[in-house]
């Protein structure tokens, strides 16, 4: 048994490194000067520099990347808060009541972000146009809320389903009211699940590109949209581009690693019942 560990371990390391290589390249290049970044193969041991980041924040052009970053924060945080407000009661209602098999299946399809997003593009563009909310960040907030709502309800339902029915019954027998039950029995189990759901919704909204690209312009453009434009205009400046890509990735990296354990549990428990 012990002998078999070594090749497995080496194989695991190798695949991990292969997966992370492009990302490592990005982070490393972002800390190089433009002239070091331009060499090929990449100069791994060149001196580190913050030049790329200074350039990204507009050191020489004076063009600030803050508005799109702030738009992204508003859209992701705003929609995540709204999702939680709507999804927590819905998930609670669905988890304490047995659901019929058919509605369970229906639910499953609504929830998994399975439908082709591109199919909804035109109607949603028209809705935004008629309501005068094109290039308005609040439209993205509401749109992302509705896009993430099903998966949030689904995830939270699977977390809430872990609360043993006996505990709820015991609480009822002891004469605990709804508030006490929620606070003492449900919350301790549900809070980590809610946190993970929030992080997952945050990641999905932060990364969303297709709708943001079509529905926003100069005012409400989000960070991914900005980055796409940046590739076209600044693609030749590798250090600056990699700095931009690193900054845009940073929030989802933090959220992703914070949610990692629950992400696995939530997505797989939810997917297989």
């Amino acid at each position: 048994m012990r002998r078999a560990w070594k090749p497995w371990g080496a194989l695991a390391w190798l695949s991990g490194i292969l997966f992370v290589l492009p990302v490592l390249w990005m982070v490393l290049t972002s800390f190089h000067t433009e002239s070091d970044a331009a060499t090929n193969p990449p100069s791994l041991f060149a001196g580190l520099s913050l030049q790329g980041y200074e350039e990204f924040f507009g050191a020489s052009t004076g063009q600030s990347p803050w508005p799109p970053l702030i738009n992204s924060v508003s859209a992701s945080v705003g929609s995540t808060v709204l999702v939680l407000l709507l999804a927590i009661p819905a998930a609670y209602a669905l988890s304490i009541r047995p659901v019929k098999k058919t509605s369970d299946v229906l639910f499953f399809f609504l929830t998994t972000k399975m439908l082709p997003v591109v199919a909804g593009l035109l109607p949603i563009y028209l809705i935004a146009q008629y309501s005068g909310l094109l290039d308005n960040i609040s439209f993205l907030v509401v749109l992302y809320t509705s896009m993430n709502l099903p998966i949030a309800v689904w995830l939270m339902r699977s977390f809430l389903a872990e609360i043993p029915k006996e505990m709820l019954e015991a609480a009822a027998l002891d004469g605990a009211g709804l508030v006490t039950t929620l606070r003492r029995v449900v919350a301790p189990v549900a809070v980590p699940g809610i946190a993970a759901t929030a992080l997952i919704c945050f990641i999905f909204s932060w990364n969303e590109l297709l709708f943001a690209r079509v529905l926003t312009g100069v005012v409400a453009g989000t960070a991914p949209v900005f980055l796409t434009g940046f590739v076209t205009s600044q693609g030749l400046f590798l250090a600056k581009m990699c700095a931009a890509a690193t900054i845009v990735s940073l929030p989802v990296l933090v959220a992703g690693f914070a949610a990692q354990d629950k992400l696995v549990q939530g997505l797989s428990l939810g997917a297989v019942k």
Partner: peptide
């Protein structure tokens, strides 16, 4: 290793496409 593989899954598509 799981974290490293997960990186590719959670990064914004704009970023990975550029990479």
């Amino acid at each position: 290793v799981e974290s490293l593989v997960l990186l590719a899954w959670i990064l914004p598509s704009t970023v990975v496409a550029y990479l």
